[in-house]
Amino acid sequence: MNLPDLVAAHFSRACSGALPGERVMLLSIEPEVTRFVFGSADEPEGNVVLQLGANAVVRGPFKGGFPDESRLETAIAVVEDELMKGWALPGEPRLLSLVEPTLFDVAQASGYRPQPRIELDIQAVEGLFGRLAAVSYGSPAAQQGLPMDAEFAARLLILREVLHHLRFDGVMLLA
């Protein structure tokens, strides 16, 4: 399978902690697209590419900067529209893997034990997203323990919407 080198490397990292024969689903939130890569034992079997990435969200609904509440709501609708197009993903696994150093650091700062992998269930991601929403309504980012970074906000938004609308149980963050 022809994958970008960085995506292939991230898939290999996701597989490194899997049991033999265990299926892996990597979520790769890239600048212009969001990609799901699935397979097992370091062997990707397929991938699905959504036509929306972090920079596309920042340029589009975020209008080039950190979102206020109106722009965040618009971005949610745009991401939902892309997700509802009926993408054919395999039914297993229900836990995504994601290489996302900034979100990993935020999770650690939020009290998750420092380790090579941090598992967040959907409620934990919703909690992080609630903090992002608070910043969009004017709460200081530092008070919420989040970076004031539009691309980070876009990646967290995409992750939250993927978990919610595609019914994943959670995400395994890799540093």
Rank of each mutant, 00 (worst) to 15 (best):
E69S: 13
L98T: 06
A154C: 09
C15Q: 03
L159C: 03
V78C: 00
D42I: 01
A88I: 13
M1T: 13
V162H: 01
N47P: 05
L103N: 04
E32A: 15
P147I: 12
L89V: 14
S110M: 06
L163S: 04
E151V: 15
V48C: 10
I122N: 01
A18V: 12
G53V: 13
I29K: 00
A153I: 02
V106Y: 01
K63H: 14
A153K: 00
I118T: 10
L166M: 13
P61D: 02
V171N: 00
E32P: 08
V7A: 06
P31W: 00
L96A: 04
G170F: 04
D169Y: 12
L132W: 05
M84E: 15
A107Y: 09
V125N: 05
L163G: 06
V125P: 09
L156V: 09
L157S: 01
F38H: 12
G46W: 09
E73N: 05
L89T: 14
S139H: 09
L50H: 05
V49H: 01
R113G: 05
D121W: 04
L83M: 03
L26P: 05
R13G: 07
I158Y: 01
L3P: 10
G130W: 08
P140K: 04
A141T: 12
F104T: 03
H164F: 09
E73W: 00
V162P: 07
G64Q: 04
A134G: 13
L6H: 14
S12M: 06
A175R: 12
L3Y: 06
M172W: 10
K63E: 15
A77F: 03
M84D: 14
F62I: 03
R155W: 02
G21H: 06
S40N: 09
G127A: 13
F129N: 00
P140G: 05
Q51C: 11
A109V: 09
R71P: 02
C15W: 02
D169T: 12
Q143E: 15
L156D: 02
P114H: 08
G21I: 09
L163C: 08
G127F: 11
D68W: 06
V7N: 03
F62V: 06
V106E: 01
P116V: 08
D149I: 07
T34G: 04
F168D: 03
G130I: 11
D81R: 13
P101R: 00
E151D: 13
S70V: 13
R71Y: 00
G130Y: 08
L103A: 10
G138D: 06
Y137G: 07
G60H: 01
G53N: 10
S12K: 10
F129M: 08
Q51H: 15
A153C: 08
L103P: 09
E69N: 03
A107W: 08
G111D: 11
